[in-house]
Amino acid sequence: MANLRRADSTELELYLNTIFTQQFTENHLVYEDKVGEVLAIGAYEGEHLIGGIMMRRRYDHLAITKLAIDRAYRGQRIGTQLIRAAERFARDRHIINITLSTRSYQAMGFYEKCGYQIYGTLPDLPFAGVTTTYFVKRLLN
């Protein structure tokens, strides 16, 4: 029986990556240059940063990890411009899906207006009384 113990995270990640690489090779999947690309797009008023979007590519998927606009600049379609920029970025790289999550006190209606569909919700995540909602948009190239 295996002996389980705490491992060095860097060493374990490298080891697990070799297993995943082997699985890709065995299944004839091409993934070079499709992992880990990060993009940050800022929204500026002159030289003043007023919001932005952070994204990470993983194979044929783009995850929007953060999007926020300064309260004073909301309602000016800046968020929509950022979402559209993310979608252009994804289409240029032949990405199939964009996903993101938001919390119940954030911008659920905004993402629905942008054409994102709910694929899951988890109540009491990350805190009691807060629901995290997961969205996806499938891009048709």
Score class of each variant (00 low, 15 high):
residue 20 F to K: 14
residue 48 H to W: 06
residue 82 L to R: 13
residue 35 V to P: 00
residue 52 G to A: 01
residue 136 V to E: 01
residue 96 I to S: 11
residue 46 G to L: 07
residue 62 L to H: 11
residue 10 T to C: 14
residue 87 E to Y: 04
residue 58 R to I: 13
residue 55 M to Y: 11
residue 115 G to D: 13
residue 62 L to D: 03
residue 1 M to L: 14
residue 46 G to H: 03
residue 10 T to I: 10
residue 64 I to N: 06
residue 1 M to A: 14
residue 36 G to N: 02
residue 85 A to G: 07
residue 113 K to D: 15
residue 20 F to W: 15
residue 43 A to M: 08
residue 57 R to G: 01
residue 30 V to M: 07
residue 28 H to D: 10
residue 102 T to K: 14
residue 45 E to K: 04
residue 16 L to M: 15
residue 50 I to E: 03
residue 125 L to P: 02
residue 65 T to G: 08
residue 113 K to R: 15
residue 80 T to F: 01
residue 31 Y to E: 09
residue 26 E to Y: 01
residue 92 D to T: 02
residue 116 Y to Q: 03
residue 50 I to T: 05
residue 76 Q to C: 09
residue 31 Y to T: 09
residue 130 V to F: 10
residue 77 R to W: 03
residue 6 R to C: 13
residue 47 E to P: 08
residue 70 D to Q: 05
residue 75 G to P: 05
residue 115 G to S: 13
residue 83 I to R: 15
residue 25 T to C: 00
residue 75 G to C: 12
residue 92 D to V: 11
residue 104 S to M: 00
residue 3 N to E: 12
residue 39 L to M: 02
residue 49 L to I: 10
residue 37 E to P: 00
residue 80 T to M: 02
residue 136 V to Y: 02
residue 106 Q to W: 15
residue 52 G to I: 01
residue 38 V to D: 04
residue 79 G to V: 05
residue 94 H to W: 02
residue 75 G to I: 13
residue 49 L to G: 01
residue 66 K to A: 13
residue 89 F to N: 05
residue 58 R to Y: 14
residue 13 E to N: 15
residue 29 L to V: 09
residue 44 Y to C: 07
residue 66 K to T: 09
residue 84 R to Y: 06
residue 62 L to P: 02
residue 83 I to A: 03
residue 101 S to E: 06
residue 104 S to D: 11
residue 52 G to T: 00
residue 103 R to Q: 10
residue 27 N to I: 08
residue 49 L to E: 06
residue 13 E to H: 14
residue 90 A to L: 04
residue 53 I to M: 09
residue 47 E to H: 03
residue 41 I to T: 10
residue 13 E to Q: 15
residue 27 N to W: 05
residue 61 H to Q: 10
residue 65 T to D: 04
residue 8 D to A: 12
residue 91 R to E: 11
residue 117 Q to V: 05
residue 39 L to P: 01
residue 3 N to R: 12
residue 78 I to T: 13
residue 108 M to W: 07
residue 27 N to M: 04
residue 120 G to P: 06
residue 3 N to H: 02
residue 109 G to K: 11
residue 135 F to E: 10
residue 32 E to D: 01
residue 58 R to K: 12
residue 4 L to G: 03
residue 64 I to K: 01
residue 91 R to G: 00
residue 58 R to A: 11
residue 59 Y to L: 05
residue 125 L to Q: 12
residue 82 L to H: 07
residue 62 L to N: 02
residue 20 F to P: 07
residue 41 I to S: 10
residue 91 R to V: 12
residue 14 L to E: 12
residue 72 A to G: 03
residue 127 F to I: 05
residue 17 N to R: 15
residue 67 L to D: 10
residue 129 G to D: 11
residue 1 M to V: 03
residue 2 A to E: 11
residue 72 A to N: 08
residue 77 R to C: 09
residue 88 R to P: 02
residue 36 G to H: 05
residue 102 T to M: 05
residue 65 T to W: 12
residue 89 F to D: 03
residue 51 G to W: 11
residue 59 Y to T: 07
residue 8 D to W: 00
residue 45 E to R: 02
residue 117 Q to K: 08
residue 67 L to W: 08
residue 65 T to E: 08
residue 61 H to R: 13
residue 67 L to V: 00
residue 15 Y to G: 11
residue 24 F to E: 08
residue 36 G to A: 12
residue 19 I to V: 06
residue 115 G to M: 05
residue 122 L to Y: 07
residue 44 Y to K: 08
